[in-house]
């Protein structure tokens, strides 16, 4: 037995081969997901070319030319980009604040970052409506300090949607950034300083490039998730601020136009998967702890 252990340790390969099909554990989940996940998704996407019968690519033509679809699409992309940029800047900065904080403050700041993560999406979106409505706390404050003399319409605006989604998605950037920063080797900073870099140069030339993986991975995830957002825009946005997800749902429930819904679903899914494939290496590293070379 000693020789077995010895040869394993000396063998270089960290994961020993065991005489059993290694992927056995994958089979149940693959089989079940094929039925309850892949099949429905394939069905809905295939409706894009089969509904109405013989539709061909006509539904996709509509997606690319129909002004309603384009307006909803533009809302989605614009909001997603703004939210991604906002969460990237705020999330990285906040993660840096956690990183630099003392032990007690660090726990507190982490708690603040995690609490929304655990709070129901619906509850948070609803809470924003309470905050932003004409009789909400923000307008109350503005009226109290006499900045305005009648309530400012904040709810049902693109601003409300962006604010709500930014807050809700912020933890997805904060956490991987913070993880990357905690892994940062402090000696690299000292090395940069000893080599003549001032603190700001050490930050931008060494700290930021090394911890950027967390930022990129988190931002990809935020971008991908925000492209499919539904609840928050419906509750916080006006009728003109709705994203593509809302249009897809309404095509199915009110228009019964499965073909158009299917083609929009196909486009969104394709974009999401393409983005994820592009950033898969970084996302896998940041969120799955997987070293992909």
């Amino acid at each position: 037995m000693n020789t077995v252990l010895g040869s394993l340790q000396g063998g270089g390969s960290r994961k020993p081969r065991l005489p059993r099909p290694a992927a056995l554990g994958m089979w149940p989940v693959l089989a079940v997901l094929l039925v309850i996940f892949v099949w429905p998704t394939v069905v809905i996407i295939s409706r894009s070319v089969t509904d109405p019968p013989g539709a061909g690519l006509s539904n996709f033509h509509r997606v690319l030319t129909d002004p309603t679809v384009l307006r909803f699409g533009w809302n989605t992309v614009r909001t997603a980009l703004i939210v991604t940029a906002a969460t990237a800047v705020i999330g990285y900065g906040y993660a840096y604040a956690i990183y630099r904080a003392g032990p007690a403050l660090r726990v507190l700041l982490l708690f603040c970052a995690l609490l929304p993560f655990w709070t129901s999406l619906l509850v948070r979106s609803f809470a924003w409506t309470v905050i932003l409505r004409d009789t909400g706390i923000v307008n109350w404050l503005l009226l109290r300090v006499d900045v305005v003399d009648h309530p400012v319409g904040l709810l049902r605006t693109p601003f409300a949607v962006t604010l709500g989604m930014t807050q809700i998605l912020l933890p997805f950037v904060i956490l991987p950034c913070y993880t990357a920063m905690m892994r940062f080797d402090r000696d690299l900073h000292l090395a940069a300083r000893s080599l003549g870099a001032r603190p700001s140069a050490a930050f931008w030339l060494v700290f930021f490039p090394v911890t950027r993986v967390g930022l990129v991975a988190g931002s990809i995830l935020v971008l991908v998730l925000s492209l499919g957002y539904y609840i928050t825009p419906v509750l916080l946005g006006g009728p003109g601020d709705q994203p593509i997800a809302v249009l897809i749902a309404s095509q199915v429930t009110t228009q019964l136009d499965w073909g158009l819904a299917g083609s929009m679903a196909a486009v969104v899914t394709a974009v999401v998967l393409a983005l994820l494939a592009l950033g898969w290496r970084l996302v896998a590293r940041a969120f799955l702890g997987e070293e992909v070379r």
Binding site: D185, D187, L188, L190, A191, A192, R193, S194, L195, G196, A197, R198, P199, L205, V206, P209, V210
Partner: peptide, 28 residues
């Protein structure tokens, strides 16, 4: 501050900047 002492330091774990090539590290 350390950047104005003109002292070279070699660290135990080398502390090479992982995102820079050898030349960029030495040129830093």
């Amino acid at each position: 501050p350390p950047e104005r002492r003109n002292i070279g330091v070699v660290f135990q774990n080398y502390s090479l900047f992982p995102h820079m090539s050898v030349a960029a590290n030495v040129g830093f």
